[in-house]
Structure formats: C-alpha cells, structure tokens
Design a protein around this nucleic acid. Sequence first.
DNA 1: CTGGATGATTTGTG
DNA 2: CACAAATCATCCAG
Length: 370
Amino acid sequence: MVTVLSGDPYSTPDVLGEQLKKTCLSSSCSACWNDRKHALNCHRMKPALFSVLCEIKEKTVLGIHGIQEEGPSNAQLMRLDNMLLAEGVSRPERRGRGGSAAAANTATPGGCPNDNSLEHSDYRAKLSQIRQIYHSELEKYEQACREFTTHVTNLLQEQSRMRPVSPKEIERMVGVIHGKFNAIQMQLKQSTCEAVMTLRSRFLDARRKRRNFSKQATEVLNEYFYSHLSNPYPSEEAKEELARKGGITVSQVSNWFGNKRIRYKKNMGKFQEEATIYTTKMAVDTTKVGGLRSQASCPSTPSSGSSDPFPLTSAGDALITLQTLASLRRTPAGGSLRSQAKSGWQGAAPPASTASPAGDPGSVHSDASN
DNA sequence: CTGGATGATTTGTG
DNA sequence: CACAAATCATCCAG
C-alpha cells in the first residue's frame, strides 16, 4: 500500500531517490517536483518557516476577514425562533396530547365562540405536517453541515503539511461554513413561518369559518324580528338577551338583524311563509297567555319563563303582519311591497303608534287600483 | 356541481 | 357609533 503510489511525496524516500537518479534529467517533470517538495518537507527549518508564514497571514488576509458581519441576521433569527417556538413548531412531535393540545388551543386569540374543535383538529394536523417537514429538513441541513465541515477540516489539515495553515485558520473556516449553513437554515425557518401564518389565516379566519346558527338561535331571532316588525331594532339590552338565549354573541345578533332587515325589505314576498309561521305563533302565544288582555305584558318568547325587557309592541306587530299578508294575497304585483316596507322602517314615520286594525292600507289600495 | 341561503365584512352616511 | 347597502365567502340542498 505504501509503495504503489509513485507520485506520493510521503512514500519511502529511498525508492523515489533511486527512480529519480535513473530516469530523469529535466527540472520540470513531476518526479523532480515531488522530490523538491519532499526535500522541503524534510527540511529542519520548515516548522519555523510555516509558523512565521502563518503569523503573516494572520496579520494580513485573515485580519481583514476576521471582522465578520453577524449582527442584523442574529436578531432576525431569534425572532423566527421565537415565533416557531410559540407556534409549537420548534418543539419535537409529541404523542401524549393531554394539556399540550389545550395550551395550543388557548393560544389562539379572539377565536369565535362557537364550538370549532373539528376545525382545530384539522388545523393541528396541518401544523403537525409542517412541523414534520421542518424537522426533517433541519436534520438534513445539520447533517450536510456536519459532513461538509469535517470534509473541509480534513482537507485543510492535510494541506497544512504542505502549506502554512494555522489551526486558527481552520477554525475560522469552520465558522464561515457554519455561517453559510445558518443562512440556509434561516431561509427554512422563514418559509416555515410563512407556511404557519398562511395556515393560521386560513383556518382561524372567522369569515371563512362561517357556521349557520343553531335552530334555537334562529328561532329566537326570528321571533323577535317578526314580533317587532314595525320597529325591528332591538336595544342593547334586548340584543344581549337574544344573544344569551341563542347562544351567540351580541355582534352576531346585530349582524343578523342588519342582514334580516335588508333582506326582508328587499324581498318581502320571499319571507311571507316565514312571517306567517312566526306571527301565527305569536298570535297563539298571546291569546294563550293573555287571554284577557295583552296590555300589560306580552312574553314574546314562551320558551323562557322569565319576562323579557323588550318593547311591548308584539301584539300590534303581529296584527299588522297578518293584515299585510292578507292584503298581499289579494294583490299579485310585488312592487307595492317595497314601498310599504320602506315607509314602515325608514320612510316618514313608523306605524308603530297606529296599532289599529285600520292601519295604512292606502299604498296597497293605490297599487291595487293600478 | 350549482344556485340560493346566510353569516361576516366593507363601505358610505348621518 | 349605529345603520343601510353592497359584497364576500361559505354552507347546503337538489
């Protein structure tokens, strides 16, 4: 193994010397060159010479490169690390999903109050997928970094026998390599962060996760709406009550009434059936409860035993609606409906005060006469 | 897959 | 800020 490599400067000198004497006279052939190198290597002054050369190098080239810029990237890396840690990506995959899952759930601020454990499990699954990819990639990078570092270190150590390479220089080179790999790692972290952010916005955006209200909530809201049809603007207190009864938030109640008003007004015909259902229900309730008189109190929601603080107009509204429906059946056109609705809520004055059976059939009449 | 229903958001107004 | 109107995005029955 030692003797086969004729070009190796570290092979046995005697053999090489013999070869040289026999074959070559030229000063430029490789054998001669190897011989000179060998002579230099064996020179007793070599260590001292290399040490001096290393010193000079240190003072010139390396001195300049020595001042590395690592300032701004460090802060960014820390930020990314913090975020990944906060999102639960930095931690390795864990099996026991006891309190950790709950912690992940509570970490989402301002979530919708509805039950969305299903979405959360989906979210967690996707997050775990990202985490897996992240860790496998990170491992790959680390391995590549290790391999490359040892490779370069070995190479430099090998070369240090032939040219002046100080251990400090090797160390520095390792640092440079780590710096380069860190940049790649930062890119990985950055893209992982982006993926998590996208996932978050996709899964936790309330608008995208629209859920239809429960039957109970719709019922409660519709009951109030149709029993206050002349003035379907619940007070803050009423909204809170409705929210409580329907298991939704106050802002959801406000949204619902906003949508309902506009849609009802836009197309009253479409809501005829619904209106009939709820108004007859109201009528039945009022007659059942206040058989004598609906003057003092008229519970709009029979489901709850407590008396509600709603405006006391349900009986009148129910009458108006029924009357409206009766007249609507007689008139085929839908054009009149709009004008009537408009005059009711935003026109001149709400007919709430005129709860009399002879309300305002004027518009209907005028339309019918057309 | 599609159209209507529906909850949420945006924009404009008083 | 509350509301109207328009619009967006999703749900869901057919």
